[in-house]
């Protein structure tokens, strides 16, 4: 059974780009594009007050990497117009009565970041004798001191790539046999259904692990992501995750009639995973009901494990809960897919 599957995979040329290029391309896309940071923000300046303090603020605005002064204007209307047409994202008014700031709020993330940058610069230029606040926070960033988004994305993409590849592959297999008509051959062999399913799973398991090594290596050597944890532990936790996704894929493929129906269903299953797994959008910010819903997504736990291994270097002692859950998922879905296959047989 194993031998037959390997031969089939070897012969299917279409699979190679999917196995090798798709993970790397995704890594590049997510690694480089996914960042909420923003630099060189175009701003408009309106200066009514001509004193050394205003000059100082302007100077540090210009020397910072955050802002570019796009235009100097003389009225608030002009600032609003510049923002409306997208020429500027914010306007700074150095007025007689104090400093006012206008920010384009349509992208709320960017807007909040811009506000923070302004505050930072104004705080650095404050008059120490009057304006010093009572409590000054001194920050220290743990686990990712340079706050590089890539370091956060690489472990997440690793989980996502494994999910997509293994599920698409697995959801295609049985249906394909059925479409080509070879599934009857399998039915008449003396193999038990567990043997058939396991024989189908193992080669894809190996492909999954191959992709794991590929993405992790690319992350470490191309993106310089730190890898603080134990590689053995990574393999130990990846096993139940791939088992889950492959079994789920096989389950989909058993219950679908055509190959494209299977792939379609697999995509449908993946969509909520993309949004709800905490891969891009923090789970803590979701409403409580959705937060509860995320606990049924295996990839959520796997991404937590991956990020902790990569960035924090922690092991089983802290991650035991997630690991146990993944193992439960894995064996449950395996059992379900074998059960579904048996039902199909009879």
């Amino acid at each position: 059974m194993l031998k037959k599957e390997f031969c089939q995979i070897k012969r299917d040329r279409r699979l190679f780009p999917l196995i090798i290029f798709a993970p790397v391309i995704q890594l590049f896309l997510f690694g480089y594009a996914v960042s909420l940071d923003i630099n060189e923000i175009p701003i408009a300046i309106m200066k009514e007050k001509h004193d050394s303090y205003s000059e100082e603020i302007l100077l540090s605005l210009m020397s910072s990497n955050y802002f570019i002064i796009r235009e100097n204007v003389h009225s608030i209307d002009e600032i609003e117009k510049a923002i409306l047409h997208g020429r500027a994202k914010a306007g700074l008014i150095l007025g007689e009565k104090g400093i006012n700031i206008l920010i384009d709020g349509s992208d709320n993330n960017t807007a909040a970041l811009i506000e923070g940058y302004f505050e930072k610069i104004l705080f650095e230029n404050r008059n120490p004798s009057i304006d010093t606040p009572e409590v000054i926070p001194v920050f220290r960033m743990l686990f990712n001191p340079e706050l590089k988004t890539v370091n956060f994305m690489v472990p997440g993409v690793t989980g996502l790539v494994l999910l997509i590849i293994t599920m698409v592959l697995a959801s295609g297999i049985l249906v394909k046999e059925r479409e080509v008509g070879t599934i009857e051959h399998i039915f008449v062999t003396p193999l038990t259904s567990s043997e058939v399913i396991l024989g189908k799973l193992l080669p894809f398991m190996i492909i999954g692990f191959f992709d794991l090594f590929l993405v992790v290596a690319a992350g470490i050597f191309i993106f310089n992501t730190p890898f603080k944890g134990n590689f053995g532990f990574l393999i130990f936790t990846t096993f139940p995750f791939i088992l889950t996704t492959l079994s789920l894929g096989i389950f989909i493929s058993i219950t679908s009639k055509t190959q494209q129906q299977a792939v379609m269903t697999a995509f449908m299953v993946m969509l909520p995973n993309l949004i709800l797994s905490g891969f891009m959008f923090p789970i803590e910010n979701m409403p409580l009901l959705l937060q509860k819903l995320t606990s049924i997504l295996p990839v959520k736990y796997y991404i937590i494990i991956l990020r902790s291994i990569f960035l924090k270097g922690v092991g089983l002692k802290i991650l035991w809960r997630e690991t146990v859950i993944l193992f439960c998922f894995g064996f449950t879905f395996l059992f379900l897919s074998i059960l579904a296959f048996k039902k199909k047989l009879s």
Binding site: G98, I101, D104, G105, N108, L122, D131
Partner: peptide, 11 residues
């Protein structure tokens, strides 16, 4: 707390 007056347009 001594922050400047910030107004967000459009959202």
């Amino acid at each position: 707390k001594s922050e400047p007056n910030v107004r967000f347009l459009y959202n």
